[in-house]
């Protein structure tokens, strides 16, 4: 590998690293929920939904975020859950 090649090999820009790290840390800062509490909530949600559907557990994404209410500028915290459903259970099984 020539010297030019070493220099031209672009590392990720440090400002992008900063931004990504900030975004992650703020998710937890903003929620007054500890990661442990979030984990408990997640497990309960999984239990409930599993009664009705088969879900893709490793792909579940649950996080706290901030949003604004419609027609109102006041910010509110929101729990966003993205739960991939593989299959709805047959009604007869319920």
């Amino acid at each position: 590998m020539g010297i030019l090649e070493i220099f031209s090999k672009r590392q990720e820009k440090s400002k992008d690293v900063a931004k990504e790290r900030l975004k992650l840390v703020l998710v937890h800062d903003r929620a007054d929920l500890s990661p442990r509490l979030l984990e408990l909530i997640k497990n309960d949600i999984i239990d409930v939904i599993s009664n009705y559907a088969e879900i893709d557990i490793p792909d579940i994404d649950i996080k706290m975020t901030k949003t604004t209410k419609e027609g109102d500028n006041r910010p509110v915290s929101a729990l966003i859950a993205n739960i991939p459903i593989k299959k709805i259970k047959n009604r007869d099984d319920l």
Partner: peptide, 12 residues
């Protein structure tokens, strides 16, 4: 690329 831009910060 070594300092966050104005837009980066506003975005966050």
């Amino acid at each position: 690329g070594d300092m966050m831009t104005i837009d980066d910060i506003l975005d966050i």
